[in-house]
Structure formats: C-alpha cells, structure tokens
Amino acid sequence: MSSQEQEHLNGAGFETRAIHAGYDPDPTTGAVNPPIYATSTYKQDGVGGLRGGYEYSRSANPTRTALEGALAAVEGGTHGFAFASGLAAEDTLIRSLMKPGDHLVIPDDAYGGTFRLVDKVVAVWGVEHSPAAVHDVAAVAEAVRPGQTRVVWAETPTNPLLNVADIAGLAEIAHAVGALLVVDNTFASPYLQQPLELGADVVVHSTTKYVGGHSDVVGGALVVKDAELAERIAFHQNAMGAVAGPFDAFLTHRGLKTLAVRMERHCDNAERIADFLTSHPAVGEVIYPGLETHPGHATAARQMRRFGGMVSFRVTAGREAALRVCERARVFTLGESLGGVESLVEHPGLMTHASVAGTDLEVPDDLVRLSVGLESVEDLIADLEQALG
C-alpha cells in the first residue's frame, strides 16, 4: 500500500491507524482484510519487470507488506519489518548494525533469549558487550565506550524485573558517542509507549506477545524512521531470510487491530492485582511500574500511556514457596510467554531466564512473573489467593 493511498491516516488516532494502516479494501472485491498470499513466486512482466515490486516471497509478500506498514504506522516510524520471531528480528538488527570488534550495552536484567543471543552467538562473531542498569542513565554512560560502542540496547519495562529506562536520557547518551539506541518495546506495546518519539533509533518487538495477543503466532518486528537505516535492515532481512510467513503475518496484523482495547483491559486487571498482592502477607515485594513505590514510577508515568499488564513479585518464604505458587495456580496457566488474552504465571529463574543463571544477570529465585490477561479480575485474584495460601 503506497503512502499516497494511506494519506488519509495522517494525524489519525492510534486505534484508527492500527485498524486501517497498511491496507485499503481490495479494489476488485472490496475485501476489508488483506488476503493471505500463499505464494512463493510471482509472474514477472518481462525480464526484470516486477509486478508491484514482488518477485519472491522472501524478499516481499503482500500480506507481510500490509503488516509492516501497519507496524510502522502505530510506532510512529516510516519503515516496518516483520520477522519469523523476536530473536530473528534481534539477530538481523545486530548484524545490520555491527561488525567484529564493535561493542554494545545490554540491560543487566535483559530477557534471557536476548542475553543468550548476545553472549553465546554474537560474542563468537567478535562483538563485545557490557551489561548495565538501563534504568540508571549514569550507569549506561559509564558502560559506553566512545569509538567502539555502536548500540545501546534497552528494554523498558525490563523482563522480568520491570525496571523502567528513561528513553530520552539514554538516547542522549548513545548519540553522544555515535551509537544508536535500540528499545525493546515488547512489554509496553506501541499503544502504551512510543520510543521513536522519545529519541530511540530502532524499536524491537516480539510480536508473539501483545501485538499478536492471542498466543497463536510467533513473530518479531523492527521499526525505524531513518531511510538509510531502513535500507540496511531491508538488505539484511532479505539476505538472512528469517521473515514472517504470510499466514503468520495475517494473524499478527489481525491481533494488532485490537491492541488498544486489549491493552486497556490488561492494564485494568494488572493494577487491581498489584494492589491485591501489595497487601498479601506472603508477598515480600510487588514490582509494578504503576505503584508509586516503584523507583521508575515517575519515568513510566511520563513516557507511558498506562503501566502495562506485567506484574512480578517476590515470595517471602523463598524459592520453594515461589515454585508452589506457580504449580498451584489454575486460572493463571503455567507458561513461558506473555501478552496473550489468557493469564500466565512463571518462575523466571527456572524458565524464561534459565540461560542467565550463574551470570551477572541472574534473577532472584523467589521471583514470580505474571502476564495478566483479560479474564474476570475477581477470578484472577481468587486464584492468586489460593495459590499463595
């Protein structure tokens, strides 16, 4: 879909862009949703004469094009890229931006999969990294290496400790040494937070999570504003080939259209659950940016629309008690993902963050992470009450 054909969306609200960006009703049939173009190959109008720019579905597919246009629109970018997974997006981005001998800063409580990619895959390639508390601008300033640091990588809120990074502050630090700021916006979603508007250069998503929203598709995304950077990413996306398939792109695009209404309910439920846990005697600490006691609350209030659907807490009685909470939950499903309509519970130390065990990024063993879904909040609270019992 050309930019000219989508000009009517300029200045439109988030919900309108999420529903209409990337695709106009089919001129022949009037179909309001993009078809699933289940094709690898396209007939060319003569040698080198591409019809609509399509030649092979690794390079481009109309269903993926619609999703990528919508992703760019909701993130306030100009170019979106859809991948087979969040880690495929991250790997492609790192290899687009970095070369052996370069350095990047990562969160000291990064998602375990990101840490594994950087520490076990990218490091072998010759890229160096340093963990830093990305919620502390001074710590990041100390970690960057002028002339060597090419990327400052932030999650905000972080996974699973829900630390909040000052995006504008980190952008200033990164740009001062000639580096780019990459923000993993998975936990917040484009509805709650707009990193590009705050100075970030690249936004990363695991679209498996809130964007897709229904635990039925795996995907990833990158969104940028800069045309030269977009060209580099597009080259590597095609050269490396870890693209979203047409059916995955269709499901992800469908999920994006309801993101705004889903996030409002996620936030409503998470706020109620955080309040409940705060007063429970078995809980030693509740970690949720919406609580005024959270050290990043003021920053989150400044750069987020609301505070999200993720809640972490530490169980007073320790590791075994935390494991019992995970095992006894019934409405909360024991599972490693997040951002779906159903509520999930997990023990990060043994599940999503097992890859950081024994490192500086190791998470507390009494920590429980909740992805708060869209169920009746009374049922969710009752389930936690019995699980903590």
Rank of each mutant, 00 (worst) to 15 (best):
L222A: 08
L277T: 03
E231P: 08
D226Q: 04
S279C: 07
A234G: 09
K225E: 11
T208S: 05
T252C: 02
A300V: 04
H205M: 06
H236W: 13
Q303P: 01
P281E: 13
G219E: 05
T258P: 09
H280L: 03
M310G: 05
H266D: 13
K257L: 13
A301Q: 12
H297W: 09
L198H: 11
E228W: 14
R262M: 14
T208C: 00
F235A: 14
A239W: 10
R306W: 03
T316A: 07
V315R: 02
A227W: 09
C267S: 13
A230E: 11
G245R: 00
D268S: 04
F250S: 04
Q237C: 11
H280N: 11
G219V: 07
H214Q: 15
H214I: 15
P295V: 10
V243E: 03
A282C: 09
Y288C: 14
E285T: 12
A234D: 08
A230K: 10
T207C: 11
D248W: 02
Q303H: 09
R254H: 14
S206G: 06
V203Y: 00
A227T: 10
T258F: 11
G199D: 09
R302M: 14
A274Y: 06
L251F: 00
T293C: 05
C267T: 12
H266I: 12
T208P: 00
D226S: 09
D268R: 06
S279I: 07
G241K: 03
E231V: 14
L198F: 14
S312E: 13
V243P: 01
L256W: 02
V217E: 09
P281D: 10
N238K: 09
A282F: 02
V204F: 00
E231A: 15
M240L: 15
G290L: 12
I273C: 06
R272C: 15
T252V: 04
F276M: 07
A249T: 01
E271R: 08
M304V: 13
F307Q: 02
M240E: 05
T299S: 07
H205R: 00
F247H: 09
H236N: 14
A239G: 07
M310P: 00
T316S: 11
V211I: 15
C267M: 13
A300F: 11
D201A: 08
V204I: 07
V223W: 03
V315D: 08
T252M: 06
